[in-house]
Design a protein around this nucleic acid. Structure first.
Lengths: 136, 136
DNA sequence: AAATTTGCTTGCAATTTGCAAGTACAAATG
DNA sequence: CATTTGTACTTGCAAATTGCAAGCAAATTT
């Protein structure tokens, strides 16, 4: 549906064409924290994404190979969304966004605590978290 | 004009509220490569941003302290835009986006070459480039 | 069998985008 | 010094996107 409409060959531009809107990275964030989410999980997030926007973003992210849909083990009515390797590889970007935000916004204490950990050994943190995300 | 309409206290969400649209990071990219740009320079970029969108984004980025306007030494008709420290601090995010894009898109050769350099010593690359950006 | 949950889709008003044209001021040109 | 050109925007408007509310079909629970 959302055809591939590359604006240029610039890496930043290409990346933005995939996830450069106000919502996609929040979906990806949810999947990084929670590993797997249902449609309803995304709707429950703090930012209150509209259901039609969510459906549209999930489709685009899937079409671009960033996320995957899979059957829920408990119920055919539910759908599980998870990150692909391409999605998992966005983790370093996520971390850097967090670190930037930590410098320029006043974040909730629990977030600040995590970022303190990140700073101790960024490489290791990313490596460990990626391993976690790949587990399933 | 664009009032501060935070969707949540999440660092990703706060960051997206500042530069999370299809154009802002391209403006920031231009400033990272070229250090200083005029209004016309931005318009010349490959992605062909519309002039009204450009004006609106420059204003929002300035209001959020990411970029600064300054007088052009040669002419009062020209305006120079540059990154603030807050803008310069987006460099690690930019680098990670580049590295991700390098893994999943086929980039122009010159870009690939730079990223090969980056990978040799990411920390140093960022440090050196930041120093360059701070020079003026 | 009826009610509820789940993952969407549909309709529509409001906002945002994108294109084209216009404007005001500065600077260069003749 | 009058006119053209350059620079940084603004304005108008159609088209696309967003966001809210309601609807819907299949699966599950009661």
């Amino acid at each position: 549906m959302d055809a591939i409409k590359k604006r240029s060959d610039c890496p930043i531009s290409c990346s933005l064409d995939v996830w450069g809107d106000r919502w996609s990275l929040l979906i990806i964030r949810d999947l990084m924290f929670k590993k797997q989410c249902t449609y309803g999980d995304f709707l429950k997030s703090e930012e209150k994404i509209a259901t039609n926007i969510l459906a549209s973003r999930l489709q685009t992210l899937e079409e671009n190979g960033v996320i995957d849909k899979l059957e829920h083990p408990d119920s055919k009515a539910k759908v599980l969304y998870k990150l692909t390797q391409k999605g998992i590889d966005l983790l370093p970007i996520m971390i850097e966004i967090n670190l930037w935000a930590n410098k320029y916004f006043d974040l909730p204490d629990d977030r600040k605590a995590v970022l303190k950990e990140v700073k101790k050994d960024k490489e290791k943190f990313i490596r460990d978290w990626m391993k976690e995300l790949k587990k399933q």
